[in-house]
Amino acid sequence: MNGPWHVEVTPDCIASGVCVGTAPAHFALVEGRSVPRNPSAAPDPLLLSVADACPMEAIRVRAADGTALAPTD
């Protein structure tokens, strides 16, 4: 798990604000949609639980080598 994680928000986002409220350091709401503050973020377990808490599974977190980390099944 070396190197930064890739964080992406898909168009499924419904602007619930769950990620923004839970991890304001990682997400911001811009014009009715969440955007990662840093698409290439230092590994942080919080990103994984937020991706699991998103009501639309719209947050995708991948390891530096591209392995999908969250959401989990």
Binding site: T22, D52, A53
Partner: peptide, 14 residues
């Protein structure tokens, strides 16, 4: 809150 929420939100996703 995040601990409980991420445990159950799977059952209610779109």
């Amino acid at each position: 809150h995040t601990r409980i929420r991420s445990l159950v939100s799977k059952a209610f996703t779109g």
